[in-house]
């Protein structure tokens, strides 16, 4: 009541024009084609680039395009552009807060910095070892633990 009284012009009656919607659809379709096209030519285009760098570039391009598409959908199709600041804040909130979860990469990134007996980073393995894997490189596989074979 107090809130809308202060909003002399209320935006909730805004009708998004037909051609704005069509233009947005076209933009989304074009972006879709671009992201697919890049995925097809990327292996050729990034031939000389180190794999880690190529992966980073691919990720940034694909996610960047997806981000732009999402913003277009949110702003025009969902009409957030024509809504109040509160709605805009809530539209952003979930996506921003999702990024908080990436804090857990501080764990995954540094978990193997500590030396743990029977487990060294030299094995170059990203996960913890399976229970039936040898404790140390060069040791025979463990026979006392049985895990059903997944390789059929």
């Amino acid at each position: 009541m107090s809130e809308h009284a202060s909003h002399a012009h209320d935006h909730s009656h805004h009708i998004t024009p037909f051609f704005t919607l069509v233009k947005t659809l076209m933009l989304l379709a074009v972006l879709m084609v671009v992201t697919i096209a890049w995925a097809q030519i990327a292996p050729e285009a990034l031939k000389g680039v180190p794999p880690a760098m190529a992966s980073l570039i691919n990720n940034l391009i694909a996610m960047g395009i997806a981000f732009v598409k999402a913003v277009a959908v949110i702003m025009i199709f969902m009409g957030v552009k024509y809504q109040s600041h509160v709605v805009k804040t809530y539209a952003a909130l979930g996506f921003v807060w999702f990024l908080m979860m990436f804090i857990m990469f501080a764990d995954y990134g540094t978990r193997h910095w500590e030396s743990v007996r029977g487990w060294t980073p030299e094995t170059k393995q990203m996960a913890l070892p399976r229970a039936d894997e040898p404790f140390e490189p060069g040791m025979p596989p463990r026979k006392d633990i049985h895990i059903p074979d997944q390789h059929h």
Partner: peptide, 21 residues
């Protein structure tokens, strides 16, 4: 409150460095 959850996991093979944070 959303950036402290790891203090429940200090002894659960979470990275020590993450634990410090």
């Amino acid at each position: 409150g959303f950036i402290v959850w790891g203090h429940h996991m200090f002894v659960s093979s979470q990275s020590m460095y993450q634990g410090i944070v």
